[in-house]
Computed example of a mutant assay.
Amino acid sequence: MSASPDQDLSPKIVGAVANAVSILRSLAQMSEPAGVAVIARDTGVSVSTCFNILRTLSTERLVDFDAEAKTYRIGLGVLELSLPLLGANQADLIRPELARLSGEHKSLLCLWQVTDGERIVLVDRVSTAKTVRVDMSDGSRLPTFVGAVGRCYAALRNLPRDELKLRFDALQWQAPPSFEDYAADVEKARRDGYAFDLGQLFKGLEIAAAVVTDAEGRPRLGISGISIAGQLSREDIERLGVDLRDSADWISEALFGVSRGVRQSERRLAGGRAAPQGRGGQR
């Protein structure tokens, strides 16, 4: 069967479009207007190409140009494009990303809402598997500190060890880890930005997860990928964790205005590595 143009299985990336998007993202993250040279350096786009794209974006009102200062900033036209998304349900906006992750990793993808009562509630789930698969019911509730999402949540809460132990002792697992192992997993999640639960919360299930944060660093959403034990290799589970972290970074930025560079710098600091100078360390 031949694929139609809309079904291209290996779409070609259009460089000009990719550069324009990179420029818009750069301007959206800048706290003040910037000149062409600064924007080009920040995006890695050549100065001449950057200038031509900015001129086009200015014509379309997606960026504003200050003729006197020779600087650019994000324009009101971007808001016009985003109007259909304003007020939309967060789960609806995130669902395409869940579907992508599910298809690439052959796992059930779950979106969890973090509540004020230290619970996570399943608000959406996507599975593209055509054969044997695991499933969970919408509205399922779990304590925030349990499982793979819980390890990420605990990493962000950064509680004193004795207080973390109290929270851990109140949790229920089908195959409980030791507190020492749990605490080590939490510390690793603080450095890596993702965590695993390999048959401890639910026997026979392997879970990877990451957490979406708001501008104040508070956990708002959890994203987990769940598979039947043995379906994915250890390397595949690790890749799932990395992809979940990257998606959580992107969603944190798109929904809550948290720069991906900021989240990456926080992880580097947790790992004892200095944050590099540049876009991530400056915003």
Rank of each mutant, 00 (worst) to 15 (best):
D124K: 14
V126N: 13
G87P: 09
A88V: 15
L86P: 14
L76V: 12
G87T: 10
L86I: 14
S102D: 00
D64T: 08
L79M: 15
A88Y: 07
I74V: 05
S58K: 12
V123Y: 02
T115D: 04
A91K: 07
L108H: 04
T43G: 14
E80T: 13
T71S: 02
D92G: 01
N52W: 14
F51L: 12
V78D: 11
D92N: 00
Q113K: 15
C110R: 15
T49W: 09
V114H: 12
A69K: 09
K106E: 10
P84Q: 06
R95W: 04
L98R: 00
G117P: 03
L57I: 02
S48Q: 12
L76M: 09
T115Y: 06
V78H: 00
D116G: 10
V121H: 00
R61K: 07
G77E: 03
L98I: 05
V123W: 07
A69E: 13
G87S: 08
L109T: 15
L98N: 02
S58E: 14
L54N: 04
L83E: 15
K106Y: 13
A88S: 12
T49S: 13
A69L: 08
R73Q: 06
G75V: 02
E80F: 15
A88C: 08
R61S: 12
L76G: 09
Y72L: 09
A88P: 07
R100W: 09
L83T: 03
L101V: 11
R119M: 06
S46Y: 11
S82E: 08
A99D: 13
L57E: 03
S82K: 07
R61P: 00
F65S: 05
G75I: 04
L79S: 11
L122C: 01
L122I: 04
V121R: 01
L86Y: 10
E68K: 10
